[in-house]
Computed example of a mutant assay.
Amino acid sequence: MSEATHPCLRCGACCAAFRVAFHWSETDAHPQGLTPSALTETLDPHRVVMRGTYGGASVRCEQLRGELARDAHCGIYPLRPSPCREVRPAWEDGAPSAQCDRARAVHGMAPLTPGDWAVAG
């Protein structure tokens, strides 16, 4: 499947539905960390969250670019933290994903189906 037809490059629902919390050592404040610490805020002594995902009525990671359900994508994709890397889109690997389905439902989007992964012809 080409990158242009990947359903996640249109969706963005997970980036606007969940708190993205992870250990501070994943940030560039640690020698092996990747995620820019300037894009996070402190959650507790050991964890940080991506800015915009801490909570409240409106959750949207500040690194989410584009419009949900149209052209949404991550502005720091190669540097994203483990919670983002671990989200599995429904049916990408032939299995459902309750997390993906919940995020899409929050934004009034239908769940992904196996057909969403068909190669555009």
Rank of each mutant, 00 (worst) to 15 (best):
L39E: 12
E41N: 01
A17V: 05
C15F: 08
L43D: 10
C15M: 03
P36M: 05
T42E: 08
A13I: 00
A21F: 02
A16Q: 09
P45H: 11
A21I: 01
H23I: 04
F22H: 12
D28N: 14
R10M: 06
P36R: 02
P45T: 07
F22R: 01
H46N: 13
A38T: 10
A21T: 04
T42H: 03
G33K: 04
R10D: 00
A16H: 14
T42V: 06
G12Q: 06
T42L: 06
F18W: 09
A16S: 04
Q32D: 06
A16C: 00
C15E: 02
V20A: 00
P36L: 09
A38I: 08
F18Q: 07
A16N: 05
V20N: 03
H46D: 14
D28V: 01
C11P: 02
G12H: 05
C8M: 11
A38L: 15
P36G: 13
S25T: 15
L43E: 09
C11N: 03
H30D: 15
A17W: 01
C8T: 13
T35M: 12
S25F: 10
A38H: 15
F22S: 06
E26V: 09
E41F: 11
V20H: 07
C14Y: 04
A21R: 01
T35Q: 07
P31E: 04
L43Y: 10
V20E: 04
A29R: 08
W24P: 00
T40F: 01
C8R: 05
V20T: 13
V20M: 10
C14T: 11
D44Y: 11
C8P: 07
A38Q: 15
S37T: 10
W24C: 03
A29N: 13
P31M: 02
L9A: 13
E41L: 12
P45K: 12
T27P: 03
T35S: 12
T40I: 03
V20F: 02
T35W: 13
A17C: 12
R19G: 13
L43H: 10
D28Y: 01
H30G: 03
G12N: 05
S37N: 09
D44K: 00
T42I: 14
V20I: 15
C14A: 13
T40M: 13
T35D: 06
R19Y: 04
L34Q: 15
F18E: 15
D44H: 06
W24A: 05
H46M: 12
F22I: 02
T40K: 03
F22A: 03
T42A: 13
S25Q: 08
A13T: 02
H30M: 09
A29W: 10
P36E: 12
C14V: 04
D44E: 07
D44V: 11
C15I: 14
A16W: 10
T40A: 02
T40W: 02
A21P: 00
E26C: 09
L9Q: 05
W24N: 00
S37D: 11
F22N: 01
A38S: 15
L34H: 14
W24F: 08
R10T: 08
L39I: 04
L9K: 04
